[in-house]
Design a protein around this nucleic acid. Structure first.
Lengths: 341, 341
DNA sequence: AAAAACTCCGTAAACGTTTCCGGAAATAGA
DNA sequence: TCTATTTCCGGAAACGTTTACGGAGTTTTT
């Protein structure tokens, strides 16, 4: 019963030893007689001794914790990244404090400050969709807080990053649409301040340019990144004089929203309108949505490794790691000759 | 730049005060001259002073952390519960250490032990599908660790729980199928050791009994709780002499797996086979799956409140809270007269 | 046989706080 | 003016560890 009150001191007095000897017995094996070491270990087991890591941490000026801040963890994406992170850091004796900012930059700020107060040794961050806390992160960089940004980054910030080449993969996706014979390709973009929004839009424009297709401003609409926002995009696109025959959405939720909305209107996918997404999701897969899959676990693992390295040596040069991705083609986009008519 | 090294001592010597006064100035307002208090606060701001909570925690013998162990957090279910938990505990200055056991009871054990070593003040747990760590939790109960179990519980354990009445809602779901006119209702059950498996099976049997339908053992199959496992169930059920015209699945993933597998075989839902799930998921909703929705956020919130109460007073009687749920009827189950033929 | 080296252990300081206790100075009461 | 009270502050202990230092006892070296 007196389980949580057992300290090194109790063991010492129970055995007529000093706390120093007990500590040595429990930790290493230097300067300690084997016999007394075993006596101590036995007594520790008997009393259900658990070391107080807070005391240890205080002394060593660390706490074996890192913080993770993500915009949400309802969908599979960030949870998978987090699992990757945990897999790596747990092996090194670290625990992870996970915060979700619910896409609110003020909550994000609060979370980061809470983690700072908790004295985490480092931070892995993916910012909210409005990316508003530049000042906060600038201060943290200045205060030399080890940090790694993943997926949604702040390009202006000189800090470690783990990303994929959103621009390149957006290019490939749109190129695929072009090669399928789609003539009028719209883009539903995300929140304008988001790094991934800009990159993917860039890739879309690159592809059009590469194939000599003139850009039509009216085919680009910023709808955000949530499924429910797709309706606005469809409402708008479907009444254009020149109606698009394909849509490249900024991500899978929006693409899925498009598919549901198009179906509601009795339009066939891909015969009437093709749809492609980004950051392949389980739902997208089930709905046969063409999309780019990201190496989520890998992102987490790499980010964690970079962070641990930086914690160990805070003078390492800042690094950006770009991971590979993959375009998975499914029935939401098909070449002309394979489409039913 | 000397940001993280500023202690109360630095402030004291910079101002020619004792650390005691500085501490008083920073904390409360007793026994302190207003003027010196303000001087201290100003200096603290100037030096970017951040209190060392580890030292404080050591002294106060707490650490403002609780642990959460869930079997997974890839799907929406547990993340939503976790958000509910965080919302409550953050308000009380607590942080949450989140662990996922990946449905492995040995990893679950490791996680719990890690959390114990981290000296969390309490634990919220949902066990893995094989529910194997009874001894561990018994010890924790004996050691008076504040704990609340959610969703997947250990009924033999005398500990706080937050659940829904799985049996009742399974009953209602199957009753709905019966009232729709389905004559041969199969049940794909989860892992046999899981509390929810047993309860939902119970509800299924209750409903059959209530409507005088004889139980047919061959219509019940334990397939587990994962989407991929649904194929086994369909493979088996679809070759029975008396083929079922409705399936009640233990949860949404299995139900979704059924729908996909049935579609592959060209069977129509619900005309050829109806499908109902449990614990409504976003994917299920999109696929028009009839299911029981659980109040996930609420589960988290209530569990957190119970845990905080128990942390504050460890002598409270053990309690089981049963929350309401809701049966949402969709196109995967339709009454005879509404089905297309 | 004395000096040197090695084993093993205890003392005490340190990590950064909070808080009890006592005391000096200032104010109040008589 | 002298005592009683109040206001404000410093000293020091405590939380549970780890570890540098020194020293007693034993073993090895010369």
């Amino acid at each position: 019963m007196p389980s949580s009150k057992i300290t090194i001191k109790e063991i010492a007095s129970a055995l007529g030893l000093s706390i120093a000897t007990v500590s040595r017995a429990l930790n290493g094996s230097y300067d300690i007689h084997l016999e007394t070491k075993e006596k101590v270990l036995a007594k520790a087991r008997e009393l259900h001794y658990k070391p107080n890591i807070q005391a240890r941490n205080l002394l060593k000026r660390r706490n074996n914790m890192i913080g993770v801040v993500v915009p949400e963890f309802i969908t599979f994406f960030f949870p998978e990244i987090i699992i990757g992170i945990q897999e790596v850091v747990n092996k090194h004796g670290y625990q992870v404090l996970i915060c979700q900012s619910n896409e609110s930059s003020s909550l994000e700020r609060k979370n980061v400050e809470m983690l700072e107060d908790s004295m985490v040794e480092g931070l892995i961050v993916s910012v909210t969709k409005d990316s508003k806390n530049m000042d906060l992160y600038e201060r943290l960089v200045q205060d030399r807080m080890p940090m790694v940004f993943v997926n949604r980054v702040l390009p202006q910030l000189n800090v470690n990053q783990v990303v994929i080449d959103d621009r390149k993969w957006a290019f490939q996706t749109v190129e695929h649409l072009i090669k399928c014979g789609y003539k009028c390709i719209a883009h539903l973009a995300g929140n304008p301040d988001l790094s991934v929004t800009k990159e993917r839009l860039h890739g879309y424009l690159d592809a059009l340019a590469a194939y000599g297709i003139p850009v039509q401003e009216q085919l680009i609409m910023y709808v955000g990144i949530q499924q429910e926002r797709a309706k606005d995009g469809i409402d708008y696109l479907m009444v254009l004089k020149e109606r698009p025959d394909a849509i490249f959405a900024v991500n899978d939720p929006v693409a899925v929203g498009c598919m549901l909305e198009l179906r509601k209107r009795g339009l066939r996918i891909p015969e009437d309108v093709a749809v492609a997404g980004f950051s392949e999701s389980p739902i997208g897969k089930i709905m046969e949505l063409t999309s780019v899959s990201q190496p989520t676990f890998e992102i987490g693992k790499i980010a964690a490794e970079m962070l641990l390295k930086q914690i160990a040596n805070n003078d390492l040069p800042v690094e950006t790691v770009v991971l590979e991705a993959k375009l998975n083609i499914r029935n939401s986009t098909l070449p002309l000759n394979k489409r039913a008519h």
